[in-house]
Write a protein that binds this DNA or RNA. Structure first.
Length: 544
RNA sequence: GGCGACGUAGCUCAGUAGGUAAGAGCGCUCGACUCAUAAUCGAGAGGUCGACAGUUCAAAUCUGUCCGUCGCUACCA
């Protein structure tokens, strides 16, 4: 740590534009990534935070068919919704794009050609079910039929939900298309395959040298490799997706999402560089040995980021592999997995309609599923906001600014001579900043927030011990010193909270001055302190 | 079925390499204070660490079995 000016790539999972994203997605990837990126910027590092909407794939085409619109209309609709969500939350992207750009297509095709020319991609023929009514080959999970093992009538082509067994679609008895209901026929089709098995040894070696990765991420990835890596079809019989850059296979085939979406991290970096007018600058994050990359994803995405994408990078050569993949577990909503489509939990938009963005960010950051699944509810969010954010931090700022406004003629007082107790609280705040920094370096976002709040509690305790409101009556100079010290302490605490609370941070910066680095900056005597308004509103709980 | 993670106070969660009497926040009880958004500060109560068995001088932590939850299982991404 403390490497100032290090290029740090903050790569965030690409939200799938087939529906609204919910608070679980926000807590799983976007919020921790944003906190981490903001922290790294304050440490003086060169952060490039990228992501974009994933606009291809079968679920989008199926939804488009169902609604009688085109796939791009669905993708555009949700892409616009995501962009609005990010603005409302102030997620600090350097580049938020989509997989529908020309640039992305070119980068994907270039990578495809490199892997093809190096022999890591080859052609194979397989038998796939084809739905004649909708004129489309069917992904395994869009085929239903009776399970050959338990005779469950609605088994999917990839797995029977009743007995849990993994299936091949050909095993299903009386197969039918989930899209049209008709009986599909087997047709032979030729596709490109990524030879993942080529990378088994190098991936195993690479994973065995990873330090400080989360236990579930590392074990899960090693497990995949121990089972043996299977080559994987890159292309699909689709007309919605990125064109294959060679015509060997004929019409009607596209590169499929799992292969191209992860390439987005690279294409977004190139898009950003081009927009900066320095088209080669993306290399600082991808080819520089000093550069670090952190991939913020949910646990369902682990193999794509610890096996498949690194495999593709190794095959391509010359590009940096992930430094860390701090995948989060899931947020459950009152015990159930959050899912907007099933009506469990809140979408990001609904959460923002209900809570101020900083308050929502606080409540989720305090409950991030970093070690295990985490349970949340509206009551829990309200509790976090009212009993922690408002009571400990919001109230601290308010009480200090109020006292300074009243007893120091509305401006920051001169420091005066400090006593031991004054120096003690300041060193507590400095120690907190160091501790939070160490935690954030390890991507312990939630623990670092706890540290920051402990800092706020220490300042509250200092005020209760020194009682400036009483001292002001007998010894105004001493009261002034106490309040000046409290302001300095707050100046430290707000630094540690700033990655989590961008909106109230800006509000405080207007009074106390800007935050420009990860340290407690001095307060400037004479700065006007107006009568404060609360940083956060308490949520009124209505009992109906 | 296989693989992985998880099961710790009323609630939400920490417990890094087995070892001082098991931790935090919130809630609860008592007390202090009254500058502040009935906010703050201090003290306290509260847990046989999912069950059972084993290894060890010592187990929340290691091993095995079982129960429960979640995820993955390669064509959802």
């Amino acid at each position: 740590m403390n490497h100032s000016n290090t290029p740090i790539l903050v790569a965030v999972a690409w939200p799938y534009a087939s529906g609204s994203r919910h608070l679980g997605h926000l807590a799983g990837a976007y919020l921790p990534a944003d906190v981490f990126a903001r922290y790294q910027r304050l440490m003086g590092n060169r952060v490039l935070m990228v992501s974009g909407s994933d606009v291809h794939g079968t679920p989008i085409t199926v939804r488009a068919d169902a609604e009688g619109v085109t796939p791009s209309e669905i993708a555009d609709k949700y892409h616009a919704e995501f962009v609005k969500d990010w603005e409302r939350l102030d997620i600090s992207w350097d580049c938020y794009t989509s997989t529908g750009t020309n640039n992305h297509k070119e980068v994907v095709q270039e990578l495809f050609m490199t892997l093809l020319n190096k022999g890591h991609i080859d052609k194979r023929t397989s038998e796939q079910y084809f739905d004649q009514e909708v004129n489309r080959f069917l992904p395994d999970r869009y085929i239903e039929g009776s399970c050959p093992h338990c005779e469950y009538l609605e088994a999917r082509g990839d797995q029977c939900e009743n007995c849990g067994r993994t299936l091949d679609p050909q095993e299903l008895v009386n197969p039918r298309s989930k899209i049209s209901g008709s009986e599909p026929e087997l047709r032979s089709t030729e596709h490109f395959y990524l030879r993942l098995s080529d990378f088994e040894d190098s991936l195993e070696k690479w994973l065995s040298t990873r330090q400080g990765w989360r236990k579930h991420v590392l074990n899960f990835s090693k497990g995949w490799i121990e089972e043996g890596l299977q080559d994987r079809a890159i292309t699909r019989d689709l007309d919605w997706g990125i064109e294959i850059p060679v015509d060997d296979l004929g019409e009607g085939k596209r590169i499929y999402v799992w292969f191209e979406a992860v390439v987005g991290y690279l294409s977004a970096a190139k898009e950003w560089a081009a927009k900066q007018g320095e088209p080669e600058s993306w290399k600082d994050w991808w080819e520089n040995d000093e550069a670090q990359s952190f991939y913020f994803i949910g646990k369902d995405n682990i193999p794509f980021h610890t096996i498949i994408w690194p495999g593709m990078l190794i095959g391509n050569g010359g590009l940096n592999l992930p430094t860390d993949v701090p995948a989060n577990q899931y947020v459950t909503f009152k015990g159930g997995k959050a899912s907007a489509s099933r009506g469990v939990g809140l979408t990001i938009g609904e959460g923002l309609d209900m809570f101020e963005p900083d308050a929502l960010r606080y409540a989720l950051a305090a409950n991030l599923p970093e070690q295990s699944d985490t349970d949340i509810s509206i009551e829990e969010i309200v509790r976090r906001i009212n009993e922690e954010l408002v009571a400990t931090w919001g109230n601290l700022v308010n009480r200090v600014l109020s006292m300074v406004n009243k007893t120091c003629e509305g401006q920051v007082p001169a420091p005066g001579n400090k006593k031991d107790e004054d120096n003690k609280v300041l060193s507590e705040v400095d120690a907190m900043l160091l501790k939070a920094s160490q935690q954030l370096e390890k991507v312990e976002i939630r623990a670092a927030l706890r540290s920051a709040m402990d800092g706020a509690a220490a300042v509250n305790a200092y005020l209760n011990a020194t009682e400036p409101w009483r001292v002001a009556k007998e010894d105004p100079d001493r009261a002034t010193t106490i309040l000046s010290t409290a302001l300095e302490a707050i100046n430290g605490v707000r630094v540690a909270l700033s990655p989590y609370l961008p909106f109230s941070t800006t509000k405080l910066e207007e009074i106390l001055g800007p935050i420009s680095s990860w340290e407690r900056s001095p307060v400037v005597a004479g700065t006007p302190i107006p009568k404060p308004t609360p940083l956060f509103a308490k949520i009124e709980v209505t009992n109906d």
